[in-house]
C-alpha cells in the first residue's frame, strides 16, 4: 500500500457471473434458471407445508384458506410455480444423466473442430425442454381455461 500503490483488483465476477459472464450457450442459462426455479419452488414449498396443515383444523378453516388463495394473483403465482417445477424437473433429469456421466460421451482424441460433452448431450436438452413446454401449456389450459 505504500508509495501510492493500490492493491490488485480482484476481478471476480461475483453473483453477476452466475447470470451472465459472456456469450455462452443455453446450458449456462439453464444452470441459472435451475437455481432460480429451485429457490422459488423451495420458498413455495415451505409455505405449502403450513398451508396444507390447515386441513387438520377442520372444514371451515380449510375452505376459508382455499377461498383466500383462490384470488387471481395467487392462481397466477401458483402457475409460475408450476412452470418452475416443469422446467426444474425436466432440466433435472438431464442434469442427473449428465452429472453421472451417461449422456456426455467418452473421452477421445480432441480433433478439430472439437465436439465436446455439451454438444453430445444437447439433443437430450432439446427433447426435455420440449416436454417441459408441453406440460407448461397443458397446465396453462387447466389453470386458466378449463373450468376456472
Amino acid at each position: 500500500m505504500a508509495n501510492g500503490t493500490i492493491s490488485k483488483p480482484e476481478n471476480r465476477l461475483g453473483i453477476v457471473g452466475w447470470f451472465y459472464a459472456g456469450s455462452f450457450s443455453f446450458e449456462r442459462y439453464a444452470y441459472i434458471l435451475h437455481r432460480i426455479t429451485g429457490l422459488g419452488i423451495l420458498l413455495y414449498f415451505l409455505l405449502h407445508i403450513f398451508g396444507s396443515s390447515a386441513r387438520i383444523s377442520g372444514q371451515s378453516s380449510w375452505e376459508s384458506l382455499m377461498h383466500f388463495l383462490g384470488k387471481p394473483i395467487f392462481v397466477a403465482g401458483e402457475y409460475l410455480v408450476f412452470i418452475a417445477f416443469c422446467f426444474h424437473a425436466m432440466n433435472g433429469i438431464r442434469l442427473i444423466l449428465g452429472e453421472l456421466g451417461f449422456s456426455i460421451g467418452k473421452p477421445g482424441r480432441p480433433v478439430y473442430p472439437y465436439r465436446i460433452s455439451l454438444n453430445r448431450q444437447r439433443p437430450l436438452l432439446v427433447v426435455f425442454m420440449i416436454i417441459a413446454v408441453i406440460f407448461i401449456l397443458l397446465g396453462g389450459y387447466d389453470f386458466f381455461i378449463a373450468g376456472h
Binding site: F82, F85, D142
Partner: peptide, 24 residues
Amino acid sequence: HILAGIIILIFLGIHMGIMHLDTI
C-alpha cells in the same frame, strides 16, 4: 440429493397431475 430428486420427480409428478392437470 439425486435420489431425493428422483423420488420427488415421481411423487410430485403425481401430485402436480392430480392438482393441476385435473380436468385433462
